[in-house]
């Protein structure tokens, strides 16, 4: 019997036929979750944090990214890990509260880690020097209220393109976070969106408080 007609292959076709053609992009968790998703996701988070340190781009909140502030390397790495842990812990708590069926914590943490992989594109997009140059001009303008000399229009265009990439990647990341929560906790359809939005807001507040209030404070004190 060929592999394609085995009961396992037929069941796979049936299960996957329920998902849309864009699931590889917006819901990869149909085929990958648990530990595998966790290791890939954490690696991507750390790589994104490391790349972000070159352009001083901080993932300082579940939905935040800000550029410009100097910080030690570990702050960039810790921020991504804190974002992921906040999402994982909050959605695990929400899942335990609203979902009656059992689910695995490793799937919640694994899918939420992998859901942050668009951050890699954000970190890569901020690498070109034109982005950093324009950020410095914006910082100087905000301090002096005067446009400094040497503004290159090409830098402004590059900055605009980077912001567009950031926004698209952020929307993609939110969609992946929702898919991760939805597949790992399996909440009822009518509750899924509502509980996801509540969880996202809570995770954003907590991650922001930890990263900006505590981590940045420690980093500042250690300098």
């Amino acid at each position: 019997m060929s592999k394609i007609n085995t009961p396992g292959a037929r069941l796979r076709r049936w299960i996957v036929s329920d998902t849309s053609k864009t699931s590889w992009l917006f819901n990869p968790f149909v085929t990958i979750a648990g530990w595998k998703a966790l290791w890939i996701g954490v690696t991507v988070i750390l790589v994104a944090g490391h790349l972000g340190s070159y352009s001083n781009t901080h993932f300082d909140g579940v939905l935040d990214m800000h550029s410009g502030r100097n910080a030690p390397q570990w702050v960039f790495l810790a921020a991504g890990i804190i974002d992921w842990l906040c999402m994982g812990i909050i959605f695990w708590i929400i899942g335990k509260t609203v979902v009656k069926k059992p689910f695995r914590a490793i799937d919640v943490f694994g899918t939420q880690a992998l859901a942050r992989w668009p951050a890699l594109f954000i970190a890569l997009a901020t690498l070109p020097p034109a982005y950093t140059r324009f950020i410095h001009i914006l910082i100087a303008y905000s301090r002096t209220q005067k446009m400094p000399d040497g503004l290159n229009p090409a830098d402004a265009v590059m900055f605009g393109a980077t912001v567009v990439i950031m926004l698209l990647a952020l929307i993609w990341m939110i969609r992946l976070m929702y898919s991760g929560y939805s597949i790992s906790c399996d909440p009822q359809r009518e509750k899924a969106v509502r509980t996801f939005v509540i969880g996202l807001v809570i995770a954003e507040i907590i991650s922001k408080v930890i990263i900006v209030g505590i981590i940045t404070g420690i980093a500042g004190a250690g300098r």
């Binding site: 396992g8 069941l11 299960i15 968790f29 085929t31 648990g34 689910f103 799937d107 597949i183 399996d186």
Partner: peptide, 27 residues
Amino acid sequence: MFVLSFIKASGSLKEMAAIMNVSYPTV
């Protein structure tokens, strides 16, 4: 067929996921 496979896999969702090449929460 899914229920039969589940019984044949001794109720192991992990094994079912491996056979079908999909993730555990999907199964």
